[in-house]
Design a protein around this nucleic acid. Sequence first.
DNA 1: CCAGTAATTATTCAAGCGTATAATAACAGC
DNA 2: GCTGTTATTATACGCTTGAATAATTACTGG
Lengths: 214, 214
Amino acid sequence: MSRRSFHRASEAERRRDLIVATLDCIAECGLQNATVREIAARAGVTQGLIRHYFSSKDLMLQAAYRDLMASMVASAENTADHRPLTARRRLREFIVSNLSAPVADAKKLSLWAAFISHVRVDPVFAEIHKENYLAFRDTVEGLVADVLTDAGQDPDPARCRELAIALNGLIDGLWLEGTLVDDLFAEKPAAEIAIRSAEALLGGISLADELHAS
Amino acid sequence: MSRRSFHRASEAERRRDLIVATLDCIAECGLQNATVREIAARAGVTQGLIRHYFSSKDLMLQAAYRDLMASMVASAENTADHRPLTARRRLREFIVSNLSAPVADAKKLSLWAAFISHVRVDPVFAEIHKENYLAFRDTVEGLVADVLTDAGQDPDPARCRELAIALNGLIDGLWLEGTLVDDLFAEKPAAEIAIRSAEALLGGISLADELHAS
DNA sequence: CCAGTAATTATTCAAGCGTATAATAACAGC
DNA sequence: GCTGTTATTATACGCTTGAATAATTACTGG
């Protein structure tokens, strides 16, 4: 009886494979049934290897949560920092990007929910969530300040904060609605509704394309 | 060695106890660690009894999900139907009620997330979610139509639908933000922000108290 | 081409899981 | 009070779990 052949991969490569397999497994089978054996099988390795890279299953789940959130903020964060664009256009792109693929994705939502449900159970998950939330809100707040300035209004910090919270809520809520019941949503894309709503929240400032940057 | 004493409870009473224990256990230990033994212990019975009331653990989880959602829509639904009030005031109360205790509660949010993460795993959970979402959106849509009419505007169905989706998103999103990071939120209650934002979405219609109903 | 290293597999372990069944005691009706 | 019913307890079963250890094989550096 011979052993199965294998190849020695780099640490970065293996860890990534294992994290991807973990996320796939949780999304498909739920946290309850995401066992180390199933995850290892999906990653194409045997279960013993997991403990070679993560000293416990919990640590691997935390790493997977961090990875998921990083992948979700990455694309949106890019558009928010794309300086050549108008402030209004950056906010617009930011909203659209958060309400389209790959962020608005049923699998990602499922994973997000699974991890959020553990925020109260495990303090480490709470910490990861808090970091990501604050970063997201700060991004929105910065965009709002830029848009107000661009529109010739005073970017009062208190007003920016409140608008950021409201916009953040609107984006999160429509993200939920749009990806949870997407079949019912095909007619009216969440992104379009979000843009019109954001304009209303901003007191009528249009987020449509402009000819010159501020 | 004598057996532990017990009392024979009614079916309704026992089922309620078991469901409450299930929700407590999931909120505290997570779905992974919500075992039949732990749930039974919290309900003050032995594990064998669970299968006397639920033919499997999954069925008990489904019952718990239904119970959770019913408890969350109940209070808000009441205010939405409280006819003596102005339409504007009913919408206002509906929003406030969804963003205050007992709906805006960290434990409930944790439970909601745990179940949402199972919507993609188990079709029964998907069904339960869909029913509740549609009912909630219809309630908001009805309130929006009433408010528009009250303000002398045409309650165009398409506009009502879009406003309902946006308001629904706003409420859900602020519910998430407010209860997930409530310590950072004490200064500015989510409900106040929601009211002001809803007024903006409605094109400036005030939701403040009025002297006479429509 | 050989030796050393460590990534990977294979196997084992105790504990805990959901489920099933048999024994028992609480209560209802007479 | 006694008796029948059944809600409840107690116990057992087979399986899976996360973790630990030992054996092996792929690769690195000389």
